[in-house]
Structure formats: structure tokens, C-alpha cells
Design a protein around this nucleic acid. Structure first.
Lengths: 120, 120
DNA sequence: TCATCGTATGCCCATATCGGCATGTGTCAA
DNA sequence: TTGACACATGCCGATATGGGCATACGATGA
């Protein structure tokens, strides 16, 4: 197998920076493709393709308005992501202490034995 | 170009389900590779590779303990993700109203004459 | 009907993924 | 030293990405 499809879920869809930018822009209200493309400095086909992905995972909706297609945000799909990540909320505070412990661990190891530790 | 590297940032790293599971397991404390692999029903090489990615984006740390390598969670890298997604928090509540508006819009458009307006 | 604008798609290419499998590396014990 | 154990890596294959570019498609207006 290869990497999971970008359309498999919100996690994969928002892994792509440009797609994230599109979503941010859409917080300001619905917009036509060309405008999004222009504002984000990408070509129209690119924008269309990204929007397709976002649409397939349900993060945006489309509405036809004459020649244009207005894309609108539907953030509900982001909620699971927020919740999953939120499950780690208390850990990223705690991490400082853990990091301390880790550093001390290294310190100690360095003095106990003339052992090479490589990290980058 | 192809898809961005999984190691390019936390967003890409956590796009992969198995990697998410590893992180969840590590909330329970540091663990050796084989144990993680067993608990998640994956092969050892698979676990090692996923851990490598997580390590490269800084979501886990390693500590040597005899023959074993204890992986430990470092959730700090998840904070940006949480914040980014959090920026949409009020939108996924509002979405229901929007959906309503959207439906009504369709209804109306079906009966009226489509009018060109460029907002923004 | 035809030209034009706004979008969506199709194709090609280079790249990196993830899985499977085999093997290399390092540590501990006898 | 040797062997067993815990991991890391290398290689292969199948797949889909994202960018560039050309083009097809649908709606509008002359």
C-alpha cells in the first residue's frame, strides 16, 4: 500500500498547507474559485483540485451562482480532529518537566560512564 | 512534486492512523518498541518506522535502557495543531445555521432569478 | 449560434509513502 | 566468543500525490 488517500479523512485533508489556507480564507465567508486561487497565489486548477479534496471529506460545500461556484466552509469535520488533539492537552504542559527529567538523564549518563550519546 | 513528507510537520505525521494510535498509547507512559508493536498488532519494523517519523517531527523521545529503547511522548508539537483547528471552533457550531441558510438559499434560487453579486 | 468567462478534468512526471521481508547493529548473558 | 534478544535499516513494489499544462464543460451574453 501507499499513503492513505488525502480524501480518507479530515486528518489527511488538512495535512496539506494550501488546503489549510483555503479553509482559513473561507472563514471570511463563501468565495469563488478564482478569487481563492488569486489570494493564495496558486493556479486555478490547483485551487479546484484542493477544493475537490476538501469537498470530498466534507469540509466545504459548493453553491452555484451563475458561472461561478461559491465554496463555503463546513467546519464540522474538524471537530473530531480538535477532540483527538485535545486529548493531549495536559501533556504538552507536563512535557517541560519530562524534558527536564530527560536532560538530567543524559547528564547522569554522561558522567557515570564514558559512553557516547548521539542525538541531533 | 509529490505529497509533502510525513516528517515535514505534525500535521502530516498524525495523518497516519497507526501513528495516532502510538501517540495515544504513549500517554500511558514510555514503552519499548516491541510492546507497542504487539499492542497495536503491527510488525516490529513497522512500529520502528512509524516511531522514526514521530521522532523526526519531535512528537516522541527515545531513551536507551539496556537492549530496549523506551519511547516517550512529547506532545508539545501537537499544540500548534490544536490551536489551528481551534480557530474553527465557533464555526462548527454555527454550521447548522449555515446549513439552514444554505438550504434556503437553494430554495430561493430555484424560484428567483440568479443575481450576480460579488461580496468582499 | 458563437465567443467568453469561470471551473473542472485529464495527463504526465517526480517523489515518497507504507507494507513485507531480510538483514545489519548493538547489548547482555553464559 | 557465541548466541539470543531488541531494534533499526535497506530494498522492492504498488499507489496516489501535487504541480504544470492543455482542454473539456457549463452558463451567460451578444
Amino acid at each position: 500500500m501507499a499513503r492513505a488517500a488525502t480524501t480518507s479523512d479530515a486528518f489527511n485533508a488538512i495535512a496539506e498547507p494550501q488546503r489549510r489556507q483555503i479553509l482559513v480564507l473561507l472563514r471570511g465567508g463563501e468565495r469563488p474559485v478564482t478569487e481563492l486561487a488569486r489570494d493564495l497565489g496558486m493556479t486555478q486548477p490547483q485551487a479546484s483540485k484542493h477544493l475537490r479534496v476538501l469537498r470530498e471529506v466534507g469540509l466545504v460545500r459548493v453553491r452555484e451562482s451563475g458561472k461561478q461556484r461559491l465554496y463555503d466552509l463546513d467546519a464540522r469535520g474538524l471537530r473530531p480532529v480538535h477532540e483527538w488533539v485535545g486529548g493531549f492537552e495536559r501533556f504538552w504542559n507536563e512535557s517541560f518537566d519530562r524534558l527536564d527529567a530527560y536532560v538530567q538523564e543524559l547528564e547522569r549518563a554522561r558522567q557515570e560512564e564514558p559512553h557516547d550519546d548521539d542525538d541531533r
